[in-house]
């Protein structure tokens, strides 16, 4: 188990450092992430949703379904922690 864990760690680091060379520089305005989808949000958000805060617009409208999922995650966490801690009367399994 331990050896496996360290092997994962090793692979992980090697992969990350290997990938470094081809990642775009930080803050590069020409980076693909800044060129492809995001300009659409910046240009359209105000006219589409009247919302100047782009993060809110993307969060709750363009990718609103992710946010629904996120809300479900929170909800699931509530249910889950309650489920884990549920204990019946007189049913103390220790």
């Amino acid at each position: 188990m331990k050896a496996l864990a360290l092997a994962i760690l090793g692979i992980f680091l090697v992969v990350l450092l290997y990938a470094e060379g081809d990642l775009p520089d930080r803050g590069d305005p020409e980076a693909p992430a800044s060129m492809h989808v995001s300009p659409y949000y910046i240009e359209r958000s105000l006219s589409d949703t009247r919302t100047p805060n782009l993060v809110t617009a993307v969060l709750a409208d363009y990718r609103g379904y992710d946010t629904l999922g996120e809300t479900v995650v929170i909800f699931a966490a509530g249910l889950a922690s309650a489920l884990v801690l549920l204990r019946g009367r007189g049913n103390r399994d220790t």
């Binding site: 995001s38 782009l54 993060v55 993307v58 990718r63 996120e70």
Partner: peptide
């Protein structure tokens, strides 16, 4: 202008 603002998408993803 898209060049004037940071990319909002990673922020959204990270909020999630």
């Amino acid at each position: 202008d898209p060049a004037q603002y940071m990319n909002p998408l990673p922020h959204v993803l990270i909020l999630t």
